[in-house]
Amino acid sequence: MTRISRRPGRAWIITPGLHADRFAGAQTSGAAVAVVDIEDSVALPDKQTARTASEAFFALPNPPCTLGIRMNSLTTIDGIKDLVALAAYTARPDLIVVPKVESPRDIELVAAALDAGGYTPDIWALIESPRAFDSLPAIMRAPRLGGVFFGSADYAASVHCGLGWDALHYARSALINAATAANIPAIDAPTWELDDPGILRRDAERAKELGFYGKGCVHPRHVPVINDIFTPTVEEISEARAIVAAADASGGTVTTVDGQMRGTPFFTAARAFLAEADGTS
């Protein structure tokens, strides 16, 4: 299925649902998407407290960004309780992140529980298990799926591998391929090193090069770096314009640009890049 997906933005910040004092900081961090988390960052005894407290995250008359929630897995009692609570929220999330997705049925269940007159939240799948990767083509066909988010920590724990880029390169590549085939965006996992901006910048550059639409983070100071990396540079725009100009001048046949051979795939990529950079895609 080919779809035109809503693409809410490049930098995503995740903040714990138990810490209401951090809500405003996440919402005003400059991230395009702020997600309150009531799954992994909340211990079992505190789930109900976080579920109740998180409603305040959405009670803004004019939110500065897209506001979302990461609920609990639908294979748990807390996931079912989350759906009941979310359906009763007075102020509702723009976006739902569904963890541990391994079947399109997970997306369908969330849509069935929450879709209502005038309200159809964007539903994103957190892909974080080997079984999910085995089922990617089916998951991507879920009609209400808005995008996918890579869950690196859970995936690495499942396959007993490291969190380094090389160890997770296959998983990231497989996710990008499947998401692109379905015409939906993929967001890379956060960088877990909080105090080294060099590591974050390197990870963000690699994620962009691989084809991720954006990247998650867990601290506001990571947001400017992610925004910087994923914002097209003057040089990138200039290079794309040169390729398109060369394509037009050559009538679409193979040509050269700055000593490099360029043909149809490069022309297509440059036009798509400029369309997105100009905000027309």
Score class of each variant (00 low, 15 high):
Ala116Asn: 13
Asp228Asn: 04
Ala157Asn: 12
Ile187Met: 12
Phe58Gln: 10
Arg92Asp: 00
Asp228Lys: 02
Glu39Phe: 01
Ala112Arg: 02
Ser158Phe: 10
Ala179Ile: 05
His222Asn: 10
Ser250Val: 03
Tyr170Ile: 13
Asp46Thr: 05
His160Asn: 11
Asn227Phe: 04
Asn72Glu: 09
Pro64Tyr: 11
Trp165Asn: 07
Gly30Glu: 01
Tyr170Val: 11
Ile176Asp: 04
Gln260Arg: 15
Ala272Val: 12
Ile14Ala: 06
Asp106Arg: 01
Cys65Ile: 09
Thr191Cys: 14
Thr28Leu: 14
Asp195Leu: 13
Phe149Met: 01
Ala270Leu: 13
Glu128Ala: 03
His222Lys: 08
Gln48Glu: 15
Leu60Phe: 09
Arg221Gln: 05
Thr255Asp: 10
Leu44Trp: 14
Glu205Phe: 02
Ile237Asn: 09
Arg144Gly: 10
Asp106Gln: 03
Arg22Glu: 06
Thr52His: 09
Ser129Trp: 11
Gly263Trp: 08
Ala50Lys: 09
Ile4Pro: 00
Ser29Asn: 05
Val33Asp: 03
Ala189Met: 06
Ser129Val: 06
Val42Glu: 00
Ile243Thr: 08
Cys161His: 02
His19Ser: 15
Arg271Trp: 14
Leu83Phe: 00
Val225His: 07
Glu239Tyr: 15
Ser129Ala: 07
Ile187Trp: 14
Tyr89Leu: 05
Val101Trp: 11
Ile123Tyr: 06
Glu55Arg: 06
Glu276Lys: 15
Gln48Thr: 15
Gln260Cys: 13
Ile80Thr: 10
Asp106Val: 07
Asp94Ala: 04
Ile14Tyr: 02
Met140Gly: 06
Ala88Pro: 08
Arg22Tyr: 07
Phe266Gln: 14
His169Glu: 13
Leu109Glu: 10
Gly263Asn: 03
Gly79His: 03
